[in-house]
Design a protein around this nucleic acid. Structure first.
Lengths: 265, 265
DNA sequence: CGAAATTTGTCCGTATGTATG
DNA sequence: ACATACATACGGACAAATTTC
């Protein structure tokens, strides 16, 4: 305890104590708390393997109710950053548990943001297309609808070895959102949300195995016939309107798709 | 409203109204409510595409607080059965959205139960092994620990085409849990939980592409070299004790791993 | 177009249960 | 047996989005 800055809450606007300034002033309090906790975990303030302060301590220190703290902790538990045990406390978990290759497939919308922030999508090709045949089926739209088709390679932020080949189809009505982008440092759908002001509520994602063809293998530094995962995503706005369709090819030798399933109780 | 049976609560034990008898009397109220709602959805009482009664109506009808109803609805929203919109209501969603092959990879512990219940694991081979080399590494244990090794094919409950090749390693201390099983109609870890009384809190799962060898391909009705997904699972009891390790090979032509990512807000 | 009603979302306070040490 | 700390449950209040009038 006693590390709260203890400035009085200003009354009308809700804001947690302890020097934290909300990145997005409009975000609900429990999300602000979650971000705050996450930041203090990654900066080492709360060490991995250690126990968090109790919910009551956090509530008091941050000037919010215990319920709000619990909601925040709940988010991070879903993400696997925290785990709680009755009568003991809330433990900070390691981000990575499995050996070997990194996991770079998202399990939540916010993870897509994080991954995109850690990588760069270098756009190599761009054209307007009219959905026909298989593409129209994949997009689940009537043939003839127009999309902006973008292809390129996604690199780690430090520009190491390429890790995925990406193809993106953007509804022509919102394609202007990426008009001037040549290197995307955020998720493509993030640009779309900013441009339209409309939030993407749902992303449907499926994962299948493929053998890479020569062409793509070369671009991500592999050989033709190498195994890979193809991750397919459909981005829906309000009213289940398809705004973006994309797929990504991840070489199997470098990536594993890891999930942790937890008991609901 | 007005479909509550309106029997008085018995006082000490918590139980929701409306004729619902809790399957597991010890389950928290919000889970009972979730199961209740799920049952009424699958029996058609709440039609897919329609709006649920409002949270306040449900709370009153079931004799619980609105918060409890919200928690229950939250569970089903996470599972994709429900979706909510501010100012509108809570919609019953279709179970399956994607076209093509069925998805049969779990995203939660409870889904593992459901999938296991819809399939049969026919055990074809069984032996005690001592973990050595690669196996010890996979299991993350010191070499020499003993495991019961089981292999077999998993079929749909209607005994159609096989859909996966399975290999399971069970800690020798709990291996007696499956001593007499030749056809498992529940999840293997379910037998272990029953036997030990200990709950499996965490399951780590990873998905990778492989090309099937002749041997396995034949068993699941494919050809050698066919693409497949290999799903690898580690089952941990309390204190992160590894109780079971298993992998499953799913032919790519029949299965897709589908996930839906939703906005947290 | 605007006001009102409806419905979910957030936040708080409190009380009690339950697993752990 | 006892204290601790998370889990469940209730109640109330207001905010925000949507629909209706």
């Amino acid at each position: 305890m006693s590390n709260a800055i203890s400035e009085e809450m200003t009354g009308s606007t809700q804001e947690i104590k302890n020097g934290w300034k909300p990145e997005i002033a409009t975000a609900p309090l429990y999300m602000q708390v979650a971000h705050h906790l996450e930041a203090r975990i990654s900066n080492g303030d709360f060490a991995v393997g250690s126990l968090l302060p109790t919910e009551n301590e956090l509530a008091e220190a941050l000037g919010v109710s215990r319920q709000t703290v619990r909601q925040a902790i709940g988010l991070l538990r879903n993400k696997g950053r925290l785990s709680a045990r009755k009568g003991v406390g809330t433990r900070v978990e390691a981000i990575e548990a499995t050996s070997g290759s990194t996991r770079f497939i998202a399990h939540s919308r916010s993870e897509l943001f994080e991954i995109a922030a850690e990588t760069e999508f270098v756009i190599g090709f761009r054209e307007m297309v009219s959905a026909q045949g298989k593409l129209a089926v994949d997009l689940g739209c009537r043939p003839g609808r127009k999309f902006l088709h973008i292809t390129g390679v996604r690199y780690p932020a430090n520009r190491g070895k390429a890790f995925s080949w990406n193809e993106v189809y953007i509804d022509s009505r919102v394609a202007a959102a990426v008009k001037d982008i040549t290197v995307a440092r955020r998720a493509i759908f993030h640009y779309i949300e900013e441009f339209t002001g409309e939030k993407i509520h749902e992303i449907q994602q499926d994962v299948r195995p493929i053998a890479m063809d020569e062409d793509i293998a070369e671009k991500v530094g592999g050989k033709g016939g190498d195994l890979a995962l193809i991750v397919n995503r459909r981005y829906y706005g309000s009213g289940r309107r398809l705004l973006e369709y994309a797929f990504q090819i991840l070489p199997a030798d470098r990536f594993t798709y890891t999930t942790t399933l937890r008991a609901e109780t």
